[in-house]
Design a protein around this nucleic acid. Structure first.
Lengths: 246, 246
DNA sequence: CGCTATCTTGACGCGAGTCAATAGTGGTGG
DNA sequence: CCACCACTATTGACTCGCGTCAAGATAGCG
């Protein structure tokens, strides 16, 4: 399988000469749930986490496997995929740097979790996570906040799937990616797509062909440019927002 | 507007002769998040809650209003409705007895919340709720669990909206209602629909006509019976599950 | 340089939306 | 008690947008 060429900045932590643990140097700490912990509290975290490096396409978790770990994405991207018995595919979402993966009430994973491009992440055991949550109520509070935010965006997406046409869904998707990139300190208008068209299609409840047609449609209207297959320039944010509707 | 005839059992709390507060007598305590609190802890709750009775169609919250309260449904049912600028409508979900309404990260309500039939609920201020969460970490933990469960079911529903045909969505919906009723101690096969067809349609991303056609289709296949407009008999659970797919 | 996988573009058909008519249901007032 | 009205649900006929199928274009990789 061919993968989108990844250009994530290489964020190797600097050598530790401060006596602080690796978590204190974490490149995505300001984005991650761990941001609520003090330096001392993070020492407890250091003992419970390990970083993990995934090759493009590597499978982190398989739908149905016992759910033993949760993750924070440090670099790269993940996709969460559900496959039904008859082969229908749905991408529940993508996780970018700073995102927390694993908020679920199920004892087993409900999605395959796969790396898009080379991806680095931070792994916690679920048990450890729960103990940590009881130990540090503000961490649990932060997790609740995250869960609530994700609920809001899941409901937004339900609205899109239920009531928006393909072009509107595409605009919605691009704007969400843009916002996510801005939060991570990136550009609002130059978007890098870490996933192939098929993933976008399965995320938006469309086919690859329709995704392609929508993109060229938006290009022909002058709302976006497509300098490369995996890069989108948002040329008219207001136009896109108007399209997106509400 | 005409409303489905409600037949919720009348669950007036018995007179208090035990010295315990009203929360201890709550009819849905075993279903609600409050179930994790001890009798003593519930005294703190008694001081912060008030029950509220809504007429059919009453509006509890309006999309865009500042989000000041959260709720537990005691009797009846609520719908959460989002309306876009151009009038497209989506019902994000229904809340039945025991359900907690208000998990969100937004400072304003993202949905209209409206009563289906006469509905009784328990109201908490958000501030009070947050303080209570810090005071009782196991309550916050329970809220996190709820949020995670809701996330799972939101993602299930995303899969349905993105990849299932109308009949499959209908089967999925009926089975979810059935499961919800079982949890509340009701029958698995005799389902009461507290909402009109338009709400089902807007929940499943369909039109009223399609909902109607799907129901008669399922009836003609012998999977369900429709003794009344607002009552469904599930006559072949396995058949429905097979239809639902995955 | 050719192989393979992805993306794009085109032609066609079908399933669900739209529009319209009919049937049912509950509420009200004569 | 029944007639009427307003509203919801059901059913039918038609339309069209998106999925399906098929053919090229493009790009990464050996």
């Amino acid at each position: 399988m061919a993968w989108p060429p990844f250009d994530s900045p290489c964020l190797t932590p600097p050598p530790d000469e401060t006596g602080l643990g690796p978590c204190a140097h974490c490149q995505v700490r300001h984005l991650a749930v761990c941001s609520v912990l003090t330096h001392e509290e993070m020492h407890a975290l250091d003992a419970l986490t390990s970083t993990q490096l995934l090759e493009p396409g590597a499978v982190l978790a398989r739908q149905g496997d016992p759910r033993r770990h949760v993750f924070t994405v440090i670099r790269g991207a993940l996709r969460m995929v559900r496959l039904s018995a008859d082969g229908r595919r749905q991408v529940a979402g993508f996780a970018l740097p700073g995102d927390f993966v694993g908020l679920s009430g199920s004892p087993t994973y409900l999605h395959d979790v796969e790396a898009l491009g080379e991806t680095e992440l931070c792994r916690f055991g679920i048990e450890a996570m729960n103990r940590l949550g009881e130990q540090f109520p503000h961490l649990q509070r932060k997790l609740l906040e995250r869960a609530c935010t994700e609920l809001d965006s899941a409901r937004d997406h339900m609205m899109a799937l239920a009531r928006k046409n393909p072009t509107e869904r595409m605009a919605d998707f691009l704007l969400r990616l843009s916002a996510q990139q801005v939060r991570a300190g990136g550009s609002a208008t130059t978007i890098f797509l870490p996933m192939p068209r098929a993933d976008i299609a399965d995320h938006l409840g469309l086919t690859v062909e329709t995704v392609s047609r929508c993109l060229t449609g938006l290009r022909n209207k002058g709302l976006i440019a497509l300098p490369e297959t995996y890069r989108v320039e948002l040329q008219d944010l207001e136009g896109l927002e108007a399209l997106n509707g509400d």
